[in-house]
């Protein structure tokens, strides 16, 4: 697949070489072009690198601001100290639980709904399909949404993260389109044999849908991991349920109080803390903890990400 795509590009560029000689202008163009992309890519990469080297370098040097390109005095104690901050590990657990459970339920629901809405026999099929889809194009607004969640008693509960995001209309479209591309004969023959719908779904449709389910699972997981606004609005009086991003936001805004926060985590004495970590280092370390899962998952999942955006483009 990848090779085929590459071959295309090779053909394209091979096509111009025999009859078209590279002029000076072409060389200048190429150099500028490559230079631009190199700089832009560095601009995307360097901040992460800078963040990283500042969390593993000697804290004194970091505070003096001399760690700019090369890490010095490498140690991992900053990451270990963070484990002592009570509310940070709670946020980590909440976010991880939400990412896992929320993604699992969303994917399962999208698969089932996507399958059900392809079944022509269903009573009121197209009406219900539109009933679900139309919610992509309007929303009541932040405040009515918040008041609704409060009325339902979901504010300040963990379930507020999970239940509302089970039905994801856009993902349902993706799954439905995908199922429609599966040869109908597979399903028909099972139906003639009298297999119940849920059995057909489980035994035939679900295994065939794995690629698309993986794609929406990854998007869902990244979305859950990055969630911030819902924590901000819905968990106003339940700091235990703040997501990691919300926690990071709070730390960024109160960098000066960080030593005190660390102190409340216990185990490390105030004096030891002040010398060990400055507010800057703590900020950087928390940011790094938040970004590491994304950076780790990303290279393996990139093709799913790209598949996702392509599917979105053809949804129609």
């Amino acid at each position: 697949m990848k090779n085929a795509a590459n071959a295309k590009h090779i053909r394209k560029h091979a096509g111009d070489s025999p009859m078209y000689r590279l002029t000076v202008g072409d060389h200048v163009f190429n150099v500028i072009n490559i230079l631009f992309f190199t700089i832009f890519t560095l601009a995307c990469l360097f901040p992460f690198y800078y963040l990283f080297i500042n969390t593993i370098s000697d804290n004194d040097l970091v505070s003096r601001g001399v760690i700019n390109f090369i890490p010095r005095g490498i140690h991992l104690s900053n990451y270990l100290s963070l484990l002592n901050v009570g509310d940070l590990s709670t946020s980590l657990i909440v976010t991880a639980a939400r990412t896992f459970l929320g993604t699992l339920l969303m994917v399962a629901a999208s698969a089932l709904i996507g399958y059900l809405v392809t079944q022509k026999e269903m009573w009121g099929r197209s009406f219900w399909y539109r009933f679900i889809l139309i919610t992509m194009y309007f929303n009541a607004g932040t405040i009515p949404w918040f008041m609704n969640m409060r009325m339902l008693g979901l504010t300040n509960t963990f379930w507020a993260y999970i239940i509302p995001s089970i039905v994801a209309p856009y993902n349902i479209i993706l799954v439905k389109t995908y199922i429609e591309s599966i040869p109908a004969a597979l399903e028909e023959s099972a139906k003639i044999d009298g297999a119940p719908y849920l059995t057909i779904f489980r035994k035939i449709i679900l295994p065939l849908c794995k690629p698309i389910l993986a794609t929406i699972a990854i998007f869902g997981a990244v979305g859950n991991w990055n969630s911030f606004t819902d924590s901000l609005i819905l968990m106003q009086s339940e700091p235990k349920l703040y997501t990691l991003q919300h926690r990071l936001y709070i730390y960024l805004n109160q960098a000066s109080n960080l030593a005190a926060l660390m102190q409340s985590g216990g185990q490390v004495s105030e004096a030891a803390l002040k010398s060990a970590m400055s507010g800057k280092v703590i900020k950087y370390t928390i940011a790094m903890v938040t970004v590491i899962p994304i950076l780790c998952v990303y290279p393996f999942m990139q093709r799913y990400f790209e598949k996702g955006i392509m599917l979105g483009a053809v949804k129609g």
Partner: peptide
């Protein structure tokens, strides 16, 4: 491929993290 891989990374981090990065730079 290299450019494409690394220029898409920022899309997958949250705005809070972008702000953290803005802060560190």
């Amino acid at each position: 491929r290299f450019v494409q891989t690394f220029t898409t990374v920022p899309n997958f981090i949250s705005w809070v993290l972008v702000y953290a990065i803005a802060n560190c730079i």
